[in-house]
Design a protein around this nucleic acid. Sequence first.
RNA 1: AUGGAUAUAGUUCAGUCAGGUCAGAAUGCUACAUUUGGGAUGUAGUGGUCGCAGGUUCGAAUCCUGCUAUCCAUACCA
Length: 495
Amino acid sequence: MAKEITSREEDYSQWYLDIVNKAGLASNSKVRGCMVIKPYGFAIWEKMRDELDRRFKETGHQNAYFPLLIPKSFLSKEEDHVEGFAKECAVVTHHRLMANPNGKGVVVDPDAKLEEELIIRPTSETIIWDTYRDWIQSYRDLPLLVNQWANVMRWEMRTRAFLRTAEFLWQEGHTAHSTKEEAVEESRMILDLYADFAETFMAMPVYKGEKTPHERFAGADNTYTIEALMQDGKALQSGTSHFLGQNFAKAFDVKFLNEKNKEEYVWATSWGVSTRLMGALIMAHSDDRGLVLPPKLAPIQVVIVPVPKPNDAINAKVDEIMAALKAKGISVKYDDDKKKRPGFKYAEYEMRGVPVRLGLGKRDLENNTIEVARRDKERDNGGKYSIALDSVVEHVEQLLEDIQTGLYQKALNFRKEKTYKVDTWDEFVDVIENKGGFAYAHWDGTTETELKIKELTKATTRCIPLDVLFGEEGEGKCILTGEPSAKRVLFAKAY
RNA sequence: AUGGAUAUAGUUCAGUCAGGUCAGAAUGCUACAUUUGGGAUGUAGUGGUCGCAGGUUCGAAUCCUGCUAUCCAUACCA
């Protein structure tokens, strides 16, 4: 792990930001709370996006695109929804600038005031459901399974690169169904899709669960979530899938005629993951040398460094190796920059999280060997070794798989260590304040207690897990109030 | 929004209290030379209306006023 848990959160904050900067993932924008995603960071996001998109399509969804701007009145149609998002909306009020009559620069033209202000979407439920009203008339139009890749904006008070930015990229799925059961099933199916993606692609274990009423999405009847654990012991909500009931259908008057020629409101879901997954990726795997990427997400899986400098003999051999690796579908880069020394390149690619590095020099050519360095291990601890040159392709192919599963296993072990079954308030406080991680504890089910616990410890309910965590399920007493509790829930400090 | 802090080179920052060789360092970038199996060294160069607008003064990065933006704490969240 990158660092032992300390009480000094700033250290982690700095560590995280260093990786974001030095690995070339993103930089601050001049606009408050916004971020520039650099090409390398975006390449990783594209890998995530493409894989998710493939999975959405595989499960019958289609992509569409809805407007960035939403009439203000739309937002007031669903009560809970407006309450949830009103505080953080950017608002467009004018449509024109003019030269400043009093001097230099430009000012907003007061004559160009919009009749109705427009909201920059914080999420698209409202405009989509306003559109769905026209798209849905009959049960034959259902289910409607649409996803959108878009940017959204939420004027957050405190921002942090990838984890909470004012503008962020995401996908939002919005589906309409003829029955409640089908809608619930859809939201559960997406939850499983997200969890599988996180675990098999990002090598990041997640807890699947249900949110408590207080932590629910604004306007949802139920919210499912995947919760990941970061190396500093804080939880990160990495994706959510909501069963919206008929709330939006009623608010936007979306009805359909069923097979019995009877009018009904449709049932809805919405679900999304965002560039926050990039933050999760960084916080979950990185170490003090920089980013660590699971091979499936790495834009460059293998980098070859000539030692100390490229020459004809090395180049010729590298060409052979690259062709063979590419034939296996492995993305490989040859860094034949003559001006940089090998040590510089090693540090650079480690910072960028490239899973496998191959070093080829004169000595190797004489001995018919090649040097292999794997990013997930320390140099002096099995992370760097030589193999026979002939075996390089199959070795690398196997190694990439090993790294992928190894990273997952490592993260899983860490989470196991940091998930505590807790029965007393003292233990609870100890976990939250000293040990870090999840406290799996009984809770009386009231929002009041939830808020009290948050006030006392800053820990929030992360989810009511769908799976049984410690091989036993049973009633107990609330950690704080001692009232009876039917089920344990996961608590943690969260981003 | 409230409380605290900050704004100087592409980046990280010193200089502000005590106005006057104060336009600085490191790093980056460019060139050349020597190097080259884990972030090389030397030399030369490049780079800033000191956040913006006023004011005080012979003179302002430095003092005063106003504005703007950012960061930390509290509320919110994918």
